[in-house]
Measured scan of single mutants.
Amino acid sequence: MGFKLLSKLLVYLTASIMAIASPLAFSVDSSGEYPTVSEIPVGEVRLYQIADGVWSHIATQSFDGAVYPSNGLIVRDGDELLLIDTAWGAKNTAALLAEIEKQIGLPVTRAVSTHFHDDRVGGVDVLRAAGVATYASPSTRRLAEVEGNEIPTHSLEGLSSSGDAVRFGPVELFYPGAAHSTDNLIVYVPSASVLYGGCAIYELSRTSAGNVADADLAEWPTSIERIQQHYPEAQFVIPGHGLPGGLDLLKHTTNVVKAHTNRSVVE
């Protein structure tokens, strides 16, 4: 069995187990497998329904001669939608809004960016022009300005110390501490036991640490421990890039980060 097929099978099995364990909360999309990078042309966006009122959005972007996937989250909030992270750029984010209108038909009224990198804030200006209120932590807003990236308009308070959590509509926002970046936030959907790890969490097929220019490698494993301790009931975990899975993604990420750190020390 090929690795790609095995990865998709694991996603399907995880979703099936969740649907059985929580039949009222989960209505997993039966329309197909989780979209992969090879299936999404740059400039297009796919939506994948995880649970009743919960979707991931998947886009792709060219970077350094390669094409990478990027995940975000959409959560229903009454007759409105909360968006977590842009679709990595203005063109993708405009396509995301169009796809949401086509498939869901509810307005996106608020959006949260989970850290300051372009795959999370690139497209904020498109959201703002569409009347979406954009939010991020003060740290993310400051770092985005320093980096020359787009800056969300509103500040999220109460997320300055490791372990801080605040309720934001249908989700809980959690600051686990520094990891992929010093400002990275985690998003949890309690009604569906869905954990969105953003770039602080890796997919299972990833074996290298990737972009760690703004990471705190020493603190990252401790931050992941905080996530595990705060959300032990999480059933569906979405990484910032690639295929979702279960809580095993947290341990896998820790292993990859520690291996990278150990290699760096040896070198």
Rank of each mutant, 00 (worst) to 15 (best):
T207M: 13
S22Q: 13
L83I: 10
S208F: 10
D79C: 05
V212N: 12
R76P: 03
A200N: 00
Y48P: 05
V266H: 11
V132S: 04
I224T: 05
T134A: 04
E39T: 12
P152M: 03
G198M: 05
P107V: 11
M18G: 13
V257F: 05
D216S: 10
P232H: 09
S139T: 13
S31T: 12
D183G: 02
G158C: 05
R167H: 11
Y196S: 02
L5H: 15
A94R: 14
A98R: 14
S264G: 12
L96W: 00
Q61T: 08
L159W: 03
A234M: 06
L173Q: 01
A234E: 03
S264F: 09
L24K: 12
L96V: 02
P232D: 07
H115D: 00
A133M: 13
V121G: 01
T182V: 12
S181I: 01
R110H: 11
V171N: 00
S160W: 11
A179T: 07
V37Q: 15
A94W: 11
I186T: 12
G89W: 00
S56H: 08
L106I: 11
V187M: 05
Y12G: 10
K258L: 11
K102W: 09
H154M: 12
V132Y: 00
I17K: 15
A59E: 07
S193M: 14
S22V: 11
S56I: 15
S70Q: 03
V54F: 04
N92I: 04
K4W: 06
A15N: 14
V194I: 09
G123N: 05
D248F: 07
F26P: 11
T261N: 15
L5V: 15
T207R: 12
I17H: 07
S205L: 09
G240T: 02
V257H: 01
L5R: 15
V194P: 00
Y175K: 01
G242K: 05
R120D: 04
G123E: 04
P35V: 07
D77E: 09
A259F: 08
I104V: 07
G197S: 04
L250C: 03
G246Q: 08
S27Y: 10
L24V: 13
I104G: 00
L217R: 05
V256W: 04
G105V: 07
L204Q: 10
V11R: 11
F174C: 02
N255R: 12
Y231W: 05
D183E: 04
G53M: 08
K251D: 14
D248M: 08
K91W: 10
G72Q: 02
G245N: 02
A21P: 08
I151Q: 06
S137Y: 05
A259E: 10
S139F: 05
G53W: 06
T86V: 01
K8V: 15
G105T: 14
L185C: 03
V212K: 07
F174M: 13
I186G: 02
T254S: 14
S137A: 08
D164C: 03
A90N: 09
V45H: 04
